[in-house]
Nucleic acid binder design. Structure first.
Lengths: 207, 207, 207, 207
DNA sequence: TCCTAAGCGAGACGGTACGTCGTGTCTTCGG
DNA sequence: CCGAAGACACGACGTACCGTCTCGCTTAGGA
């Protein structure tokens, strides 16, 4: 969400309110520009022009390119949903496939990685990513695990459940990202199946 | 390695040869600048100044920032060695810890992620990364797995060994990277142990 | 005088009348800003802020910076009065000194010259200057000359009196302005005396 | 003359020398832009574009618009020459006409007045004007007066000759400028004749 | 007394220009 | 031919004002 200007508090005081359309247009333009140009070549002036908006309007709402792109990208992650396919195995495979499909689209992979790369240097950005992107995804793992425990597919918590969640999350997300972006191989049904098997059998033994 | 200019061919013709010192100084300066400034703010002029070298010298050896940074970064990965600690479990934990230690240093994490991010947009860069970074690391997995099979800790190959290697590699590297850079949690002995357990038990069941 | 808005016509209709204080505050602020910043750096937003007034209020009353500044400056010239010191020579010296004193004040010289400079490009502005500034001053010359003719200090008109007036006016005003602003030398008693002698002797011979 | 960069000292050390063409092109473009747009609307980017030069090249040579315009304008004054028409009267009329013709051209009047106006706020600019524009013109008066004294048209120096020069200079230049730019009347043969008569008769009586 | 049209502050808006910075190329000199 | 120094064309940066436009509130006249 864009920077909260003075006129956005609960009690509006004075002045022309910010156009709500502009926000949408700018975020759309940002995503479009990212696909075409990539992070490196993306210029604020260009985004403004695409959005039919003045550069100043952009800077009034987002303090920098980083913040703008994080906002533009965060929404993309929302499309990942926890499926309910009847078994833990099928659910995990479903999530893996969804995530891989997301990372297959150029704007998503470029934007996500660029933001992560930049976050290695910018603690505030890191915080923002964790909040907007990581936490919501982690909640999917929490819900999926709880469901599997109800079904009896996973044993109930023995030790710290947070640690288990974190481990699962890092393994799933990390493996999919790494295969897609670093190894550069596709996540097909075969790989998804073998990966899920490894994960679930490993988890079972872990308990 | 820097671009092969005219003076580097098998048949040297004439003129002053390129200074070897300059290469070292430039790569060192690049790494230093990456830590301080990050990929986005890193400028060729700045690198040249730090290296005590003219910008022309830089461009004579590397065609662009990308190539220079990849070269500057590639060497860092060479320090990861396959340990021989007596058991597969210990060896995996050792590699995980080494890799995590590497990613804990600011210049490495920034540089690696920046390069990966950029590679999502640049196939040539992707190819170069695969060659210089991915393949050498994957060979560690090959050797480690072979050793474990000799020791009887892993069953001999049943199906396609390449697919198994890829899966193991993506899971290890992906999980460590994700935990370190995205989740932002440390890879301590506890996590390394639990992760290794998950991986090996999963692998055992897979066979 | 500020632009005649709808509310200022002979037949007022309705609505809140314009604040009279605001006019004063704005003109004062304009003069102050001119001294500090000069014409080039003077900004409407700044004037509004100094006057404690919204930018809209400014634009409701003056269509542009030019008009505002001319109004703010015109009043300054009114302080020049034709003295009656008993002799033509003394009267001319008196006017010269008054004019020089005026041009010695930073806000006057900056504002006047800025307006004249701008008028070389803007016929409407030139017309306005002629009307508000030049003509009133020329009338001083007319009156002074008539008085000198009555006293017998100057011969009665032989040829076109308008041409004589114009010549005298341009010589007096031009010389004072040029010495003050271009040559950058002070108009002291000595210079005023020698200049007046030159002028009057020249005029006497001219007739 | 443009700012003296590092490479312009007596001992050139290294680096590509500044293009001499660029200087000419930029000054020409500046004069052209001044005529079309006036001082206020003149933009550095526009000048650069007209000159076929990058904005940075402009700023490398002149620190600001003021300096650039002063340089662009100073050359224009060089065209005023002291004529030798046989008599002091004819020579003065000649100079007056030349100066008036100069001030009749839009780029000259706008540029000169703008620079003078700005100089009321900027001592350094004032110094530069005095040096580049005022002093050379004053030398014309010195030479003309000396010639008239040799011819016996003016009495030899009685008192301070510098004061006399200054007075003559301010009266001539001031009157012409004022008539042209403030009064807005043309300097025709008639006015030039009457002005010259006033000046010379006044000077004669002064001695 | 209420109505209502204008004035007013605040501040967002589409623009234009600013002066700076970085890129990758080029042109000179000296080694 | 190499390397330094630095000028160059290009293009993006983030800022400052411009003059216009909504807003919600105030104010004083006429009904």
């Amino acid at each position: 969400m864009p920077q909260t200007g003075r006129g956005h508090g609960y009690l509006r005081r004075a002045g022309r309110p910010r156009s709500a359309e502009a926000d949408r247009a700018i975020l759309d333009a940002t995503r479009a520009a990212l696909v075409e140009l990539g992070w490196g070549k993306l210029s604020m002036g260009d985004v403004a022009a695409r959005a039919g908006v003045a550069k100043t309007t952009l800077y009034r709402r987002w303090p920098s390119k980083n913040e703008l792109v994080v906002d533009a990208v965060a929404a993309l992650l929302d499309e990942i949903q926890l499926p309910d396919l009847g078994s833990l195995r099928a659910d995990v495979e479903g999530v893996v496939q969804q995530f891989a499909a997301l990372l297959d689209r150029p704007e998503t992979k470029t934007a996500l990685m660029a933001v992560v790369a930049e976050s290695t240097r910018d603690p505030e950005l890191r915080r923002r990513i964790r909040e907007t992107i990581v936490e919501p995804q982690k909640r999917l793992v929490v819900r999926g695990r709880a469901r599997a425990q109800e079904r009896g597919e996973l044993p109930p918590d023995t030790s710290d459940p947070g640690a288990a969640i974190d481990l699962i999350f890092d393994v799933i997300a990390g493996a999919v990202v790494h295969r897609t972006l670093v190894s550069g191989e596709p996540v097909d049904g075969d790989w998804a199946g073998r990966f899920t098997a490894l994960l679930l059998d490993g988890l079972a033994a872990l308990a």
